[in-house]
């Protein structure tokens, strides 16, 4: 009976399916569909892949939140900062511009997504129009600092996913800073440190357990930026020998465009009819 230990990969699953022989356990969702979903969440051996967690707060979409300034910065990177001939310098100058623009954008996000789950629907509307107070400002500055710090884990992630080290380390780090400002800062303005469920929200965000991500304008912007950055590597190995194929110009472009596209998708997704019920629940 020594072998019994090796019988299946799904030891954890046994806890909620004691009646079934282990070898027929599979991952197909229908296995667990007969059980109420809530039970599965509460069960101690809960596998995070089983089903989506309760949805984290989805901020209201708004046309104002589409980060069109990213397009302008990207355009300036290529024309005014001349990234094709001076990659490091342009990345750095673009970073200053991006940081100031993202700061203003952060104010917009803060004002637009100002939320409290306690307030009712009517109150919420009133809140949206409320002004930007000093606490928000402090939170925003804190978010800016945090998103700059987030470039360190982002940098490590980039390296782990294949970014070159050596002569390109500085460029990769600058790219990580750009990424932090584009993806992390708006998220921190939406899911703030001061929120009571900050930890749960961010645990969900970092493990991509976000319900209806296509309706979450800020989250889909971050995801879009990441995917754009990821797809941006594709032109690099092609033998066109153009200056813009240099590391990490295509990734930067992909991230900026991906951020804008992702944001727009989130905005459009938020306009889908089913959304209003889901958010209010």
């Amino acid at each position: 009976m020594k072998k019994a230990k090796k019988v299946s990969f799904s030891k954890e699953r046994k806890e909620y399916q004691p009646g079934q022989p282990s070898e027929v356990v599979t991952d197909i969702p229908s296995d667990s569909s007969d059980k109420p979903i809530e039970d599965l969440w509460e069960s101690p051996g809960r596998n995070i892949t089983d089903s989506p967690k309760p949805s984290i707060f989805t901020p209201n979409g708004s046309f104002v939140l589409i980060p069109l300034h990213l397009l302008v910065i990207l355009y300036l990177e290529f024309t005014y900062f001349n990234i094709q001939s001076n990659v490091d310098g342009a990345l750095l100058k673009g970073l200053y511009l991006l940081a100031s623009c993202q700061f203003i954008y952060g104010i917009l996000v803060t004002v637009n997504t100002n939320r409290s789950r306690k307030v009712s629907k009517k109150n919420k509307k009133a809140k949206v129009s409320s002004s930007f107070n000093s606490g928000d400002l402090l939170g925003l500055i804190f978010a800016l600092v945090l998103s700059i710090l987030s470039s360190i884990p982002l940098f490590i992630t980039f390296i782990l996913f294949g970014a070159p080290i050596g002569s390109y380390t500085l460029r990769t780090f600058l790219l990580a800073l750009h990424t932090g400002l584009i993806t992390v800062l708006p998220m921190l303005c939406t899911y703030r440190l001061s929120d009571s469920d900050f930890k749960v929200d961010w645990a969900n965000i970092l493990t991509f357990q976000v319900d209806k991500f296509y309706k979450n304008q800020i989250y889909s912007m971050a995801i879009g930026g990441m995917i754009g950055c990821w797809l941006g590597v594709i032109p690099i190995p092609l033998d066109w020998d153009r200056p813009w194929q240099a590391w990490p110009i295509t990734l930067l472009g992909g991230m900026y465009l991906g951020g804008v596209v992702g944001n727009a998708v989130g905005w459009l997704g938020g306009k889908l009819p089913a959304s209003s019920e889901q958010v209010s629940e």
Binding site: S8, F9, E12, E23, V25, T26, D27, N47
Partner: peptide, 10 residues
């Protein structure tokens, strides 16, 4: 890391 499945999926 491989998902805890068996059979063809695995």
């Amino acid at each position: 890391l491989v998902p805890k499945v068996s059979g063809l999926r695995l």
